[in-house]
Design a protein around this nucleic acid. Structure first.
Lengths: 280, 280
DNA sequence: CCAGAAATGAAATTTTTCCTCCATTTGATA
DNA sequence: TATCAAATGGAGGAAAAATTTCATTTCTGG
């Protein structure tokens, strides 16, 4: 499906191959067109020009450079393409549901796996949105907002979420530290934690011994703790001020990380938007 | 998806129910509009009139008869509808906010952010499933399956995806190495890469200089390369055997990682399930 | 550092598109 | 069949869009 080289895909290939030889503004246009083919089909020259941050005339120049009589001529091609695509869209959506729906039979091809996995992850996200208690979310954001230092712990499977959260917090100019155990120095990395700090711990069954120990250490030092875990009776839950229980999607024993990541990002975004209100 | 009665579907219902009471020419128009909603979204009044075999003024009359100020007004509705069907995540977030939150710059609560973020991420996942070409996915899985060593590169924002992928590959008993630049040894970490190895690079705009350099190095050494990136003209695309262009959800400038993570996990799962078939 | 060429951006111009208006046709009813 | 209302078609004007033009800026090679 849609593998036969269409007019548009031929053009896209040519844009890609000539990309390096284009001038600065023409590169901008090329980029915009490759990344927003829908917009080209829908929007007017003026509006595309605004979005791509170039003058309208550049768009016409671009079209001319690729052999069109004008920008509109190129636009028609994208429209045509989009119409053919959308004709298939509903059909594809149906196939998508179908292949994702057959949970019993073992998925065969990678794209079936992708279909199924995206679907169950989508459901997990929906569930996440429903299950998270707004007050807890606000509480967690408030804790992060007031924290002097934020220590983020997550090992093995959860390391990716922890590292992302640390990255995001750093970009919000928070004093965030990822406890990664580099050089075996878990305890040392957390040794400075104090009552004005927050520990964010991410861990799923089977819970890493190290994480549990670090959380205990944090509790002894009277730090506030936020847990992201998979059960109310997780060892993290006992020590935490706020505990998010996240149900991850799962396929053939592979547990996803998508919901946890989404939650972590939500915390970061909320912090970013909230902090502007709190002033300095 | 799109099951809630849209503006357009309401209109279509009304057209159907009033069909019998319409005049001869208006019936022609009604018929054409019901059968070719895409055409209405894109084509000009003149061209639609020609195709429906009525004079242009009839189209304006038709629109007026159904409560529009002009045909163009009706056309905009069809356009909007088509855009929503094909919109990418960012546009959807905008559209969502538009329809949900009346106050545009409303101070949002964390749980509102969570709702919106889970929704756009869910859509980004759906779109991921639709856009990924099955053959490319299979190709990537095959490359990973045949690789002697797998080097995974992803820095900053993309580090979390890279680290997860490495973790998962290790659990599948693949020789996977995360290029993390520990001790500033980027080049050293990749120095052993060879023709039988695979480099998986994850990077999004603005692309880390290091990642681009490492990918170039990998290409020189004739390694197979798999790219996960955000644009067809990404610097990674040029050097890659397989390039996945992932459109991540985004709200208020925060780009998600959810779709990339899901794709990485799909690769791992496919590899796990596929390898059992390939026998030893 | 300079001259010529290429690229750029704003404004003017042309083209396209939509809509209104009115003369003509159609169709129903007495 | 005559009459009136409704429907129709096309021409012209107003609005919006695309394109061209040209002065200015930014590169490039000597």
């Amino acid at each position: 499906m849609a593998n036969n080289p269409t007019q548009v895909s031929i053009l896209q290939d040519e844009i890609r191959s000539r990309y390096d030889t284009l001038s600065k503004r023409l590169k901008q246009v090329a980029r915009y067109i490759l990344d927003n083919s829908n917009s080209v089909a829908f929007d007017t020259v003026a509006s595309i020009a605004r979005q791509a941050d170039v003058p309208p005339s550049t768009l016409i120049r671009f079209a001319n450079a690729f052999g069109f009589g004008g920008f509109n001529e190129m636009k028609q091609m994208f429209r045509q393409h989009l119409m053919e695509e959308t004709a298939n869209y509903t059909e594809r959506a149906r196939l998508f549901r179908q292949s994702a729906g057959e949970e019993s039979s073992a998925p065969e091809t990678p794209s079936e796996i992708l279909n199924m996995f995206t679907m169950v992850n989508g459901q997990a996200l929906q569930q996440l949105a429903m299950q998270v208690v707004p007050e807890e979310l606000e509480h967690a954001v408030a804790l992060l907002g007031e924290a002097e230092n934020i220590y983020v712990i997550g090992l093995r499977r959860s390391f990716s979420v922890a590292s992302y959260l640390t990255y995001a917090l750093r970009h919000l100019d928070r004093r965030a530290f990822l406890i990664d155990g580099l050089g075996g120095m878990f305890t040392e990395q957390l040794s400075m934690v104090g009552p004005k700090d927050v520990v964010v711990a991410v861990s799923f069954s089977p819970y890493s011994k190290e994480v549990v120990e670090l959380v205990e250490l944090g509790a002894q030092r009277k730090a506030r703790q936020i847990a992201i875990t998979d059960s109310q009776v997780s060892p993290l839950a006992a020590f935490s001020d706020v505990c998010f229980v996240v149900r991850e999607a799962q396929i053939d024993g592979f547990r996803s990380q998508v919901a946890s990541l989404c939650l972590a990002q939500t915390l970061a975004i909320s912090l970013a938007l909230g902090s502007s209100k709190e002033g300095q």
